[in-house]
Write a protein that binds this DNA or RNA. Structure first.
Lengths: 198, 198
DNA sequence: ACTCAAACGGACTGACGGTCCGTTTCTTGT
DNA sequence: ACAAGAAACGGACCGTCAGTCCGTTTGAGT
């Protein structure tokens, strides 16, 4: 890859990430990105194909560290399976909350949850495998999806901002729900609004 | 309201509903609707304001019978609360599945689930009240949202079409999840792929 | 029939995603 | 160092579409 191409690529990704964070998932046009990055519009399209490609690239870039971390987590055989699931859910929750506009943009273009897009279907499979391990006999594949559905950016935004439940309360609820799914009961579900340390 | 205005209103709503059903949530333009309904573009905008308004009007129209039915259901004091919740969830599931493109269009426009938009926040409150009744001490408001989140059109479309779980399996899963939420346990969750009669 | 407010309709505008192609810039072989 | 060609650049250009505007038509009350 040519040096100027690489430089522009980085500039475009950084600019797009900033614009999405600042102006929301719809608050930018391709021309905005090009201009703010100091390149021509054609360059953006040449590199990323189309709007969706750009958003996906930004997400890939931004979430790389988190994805590696969570993949490692799901495979850490020295930790009990149920604990791995809970930690994974909590981590993903934090990640989505921290990057709400970006993840929302991703969902708009691919209509899939962040942990379930084509290049990380693996995540879903691993999660389902863990759930199957903890709760043999259950429809683990479905349950994994059910957990991930709670972590969709638009769902979380709705709960936190439109419904006015705060982040801590939603976080506690999601984690309790995950505990319930794993334990086969929901004794802890929503029992308190305090925020578990994890 | 003038006679021609009423006639056009009905024609536009019917046409829009048909186009959405046939070509998906994005497969139509305002001009398409106007032309197919045999009216001018200006008429569509005059009546419905903008694209979002049109979609909302179509949903309102289409879902009226269902909304009345489900409202009555949630208030039927002669039926046990838990059973009312399950029936509500099952009914809503069927409704969303039957009108996937339309409900998807609504969610794109208002980014809210069908049972939780401004004119039927009531639904959510009633559902939460029922859950609170069955499971005092739990965060019923959150749990109601959690159940409704499972019934979002994009979530269901993802599960059914992209992930290849069939409608019966997802239906069973959703209902089991609801049972689990109500019972404080998930013994039934995903236990089988058969479709409960309700 | 007369009037006029309400409704109509389609030309027009502005914004935006995406394409095209003449120009510039990096790289590589000599 | 230089030439040559491939790769990348950039912005003018195009088609589409939501939304506006205004001259024309139509229905309802008198």
């Amino acid at each position: 890859m040519r040096k100027d191409a690489e430089r522009n690529r980085a500039a475009i990704l950084a600019t797009a990430a900033r614009l999405i964070a600042e102006h929301g998932p719809d608050g930018f046009s391709m021309e905005d990105v090009a201009a703010a990055a100091g390149v021509g519009k054609g360059t953006v399209f040449r590199r990323f194909g189309d709007r969706d490609g750009l958003v996906r690239a930004v997400v890939d870039e931004t979430s790389q560290s988190w994805r590696a971390e969570s993949a490692a987590l799901l495979e850490a055989d020295d930790v009990p399976a149920d604990e791995r699931v809970i930690t994974f859910v909590a981590t993903l929750f934090d990640h989505v909350i921290a990057a709400l506009p970006l993840v929302t943009a991703l969902e708009r273009v691919s209509s899939r949850s962040i942990a379930c897009d084509s290049n990380s279907d693996l995540t879903h499979h691993r999660l389902a495998a863990l759930i199957a391990q903890v709760r043999p006999g259950a429809d683990a594949e479905f349950l994994a999806h059910a957990l991930l559905a709670q972590l969709r950016a638009d769902v979380l935004r709705h709960l936190v901002h439109q419904c006015g439940l705060g982040v801590p309360r939603v976080r506690a609820g999601v984690i309790s729900l995950a505990r319930g799914v794993l334990a086969g009961d929901l004794e802890h579900a929503g029992g308190s609004a305090t925020m578990p340390r994890l």
